[in-house]
Design a protein around this nucleic acid. Sequence first.
DNA 1: ACGCTACTAGAATAGTATTCTAGAATCAAA
DNA 2: TTTGATTCTAGAATACTATTCTAGTAGCGT
Lengths: 205, 205
Amino acid sequence: MQIEARRHVATAARKQAILEGALACFAELGVEATTIDDIRRRADASVGSIYHHFGSKEGVAAALYLEGIRDYQAGLAAAVEKARNARAAVRAIVLFHLDWAMQNTALARYLLEMRRAETTKSVDEEIRDANRDVFQRLAKRLEVFVARGDIADLPRELYAPLIVGPTQEVVRAWLTGRINVDLRKLRDSLAEAAWKSLQTGQQTT
Amino acid sequence: MQIEARRHVATAARKQAILEGALACFAELGVEATTIDDIRRRADASVGSIYHHFGSKEGVAAALYLEGIRDYQAGLAAAVEKARNARAAVRAIVLFHLDWAMQNTALARYLLEMRRAETTKSVDEEIRDANRDVFQRLAKRLEVFVARGDIADLPRELYAPLIVGPTQEVVRAWLTGRINVDLRKLRDSLAEAAWKSLQTGQQTT
DNA sequence: ACGCTACTAGAATAGTATTCTAGAATCAAA
DNA sequence: TTTGATTCTAGAATACTATTCTAGTAGCGT
C-alpha cells in the first residue's frame, strides 16, 4: 500500500542519492580525495544524513562496493546459467566480465580501486555470503566438467584466476587508461586463450 | 672518496629509514590508516625531515612504489634474460612473479594496494620510463618468438595479461589472505597454463 | 491530537596533513 | 681556517576534513 511507503520511499531515495553522489565523486576524484563535503554537495544532503545512514565515509564506500559486487555477480550468474557446455561457460564468463566493465565504467573503476581495503566487518561478511552463493553454484558446474574430462583437473584455486585473470588484467589497464583499444576487439582472443589454458596438455616440448 | 660523502651518506640513510619505516607502517596498518606521525616515530625522524625529502605523504608512498617497481623489474629482466626459448621465457616470467611476491611480501602487498592511485606526476613519469626500458626489451624478444611461430600472433596488448594475469590473480588472493596454499605447489600449473594460452589454436570445438 | 521514532541539519570537536620559522650541520671558496 | 651558502632537521603553528553532538522536523501508529 502507498500508506506505509511515503517516508520509506523518501529516505530510500536519499540513501540512493548519496550513493550515486559518492560514486560520481569517487570516479571523478578518487576515493581518498573526495571529502564528505563533496558528497554532501553532490547528493544535496546534509552531513548528518550521511552519517545517519552510513556511519562513516568508509561506510558509504562499503555500501557502494557491496552494491557493485551484487550487480556484477547477479549478471555473471545469469550469463553462465545459459551456457550448455564447458567451453560456452568459459566464454560466457570472459565476455560478461568485459561487457560489464564497459557498461559500468564508473562502478568498475571504483570496484577496482577498492578491491583491496578490507571494509567494515559487517559488509565484509555480506560480501563473503554473496560470494559463497554464487561461487558455490559455479564450482558445482565446474566439477561436472572436470569429471567429464572437458577441462583439466587442476588445483581448485586456479580455475578462477585462469578464466578471468587475463581479462581482468586487460580491463584494469583499460579502466586506468594504460591501454586504449576497443575491448570488443579482444573478446574472442581472450575467450579462446582462457579456454586453451584449461585444456589438459599434450606436452609440446 | 669519503670526503664528499659524509653528509650525503647520512641523509641517504635517513631517507632510506623513512622509506623503511613507511613500508613497515603501510604493511601493518594499511596506507590510508598510517599517519605521518606513525612514520615519524618508526623512522625516528621529524616531520620536517619527511616533508623536506618527500614533500607529502603521497610523496613517500610514490617513492616507495617506485623503489618496489624497480626492484621487481630488474629481477624480471634478469630472469627472462637467461631463457633460451619461448617456453622457457614464459615459464621464467611466471615463476619470477611468484617468487618475488613470496620473498617480498610486505612490498608486494604494498604495490598491490597502490597499483591504482595515480601518484605524483613526476614519479608517474619515472615509472613510465622504467617500464619502457624493460618492456621494450621484452617486446623485442617476443616479436622474434611470434615471427618464428613459437607463440600465437595476437593483439599486442594481450601478451602481458595472458602471461602474468592468472599468476597475478593468484598472488593477489594469497597476499590478501583469501587463499592459503603454498604457492610453490601452483608454479608448474600456472607456467603450463600460461604457455598453453599462447599456443596457436587447433580449434577443439 | 499525541507521543514516538526515523530522519535531517548544521554547528562544534577532534584528529591529521601540511606549512612555517628557526636553527644546526656540512660544504665550497677564499 | 673562516665565512657564507646550502641542505637538512626540528617542532610549533595552521588548515583541512572526518566525525560527533545537539536540536530540531516530519511521518507514523494509536
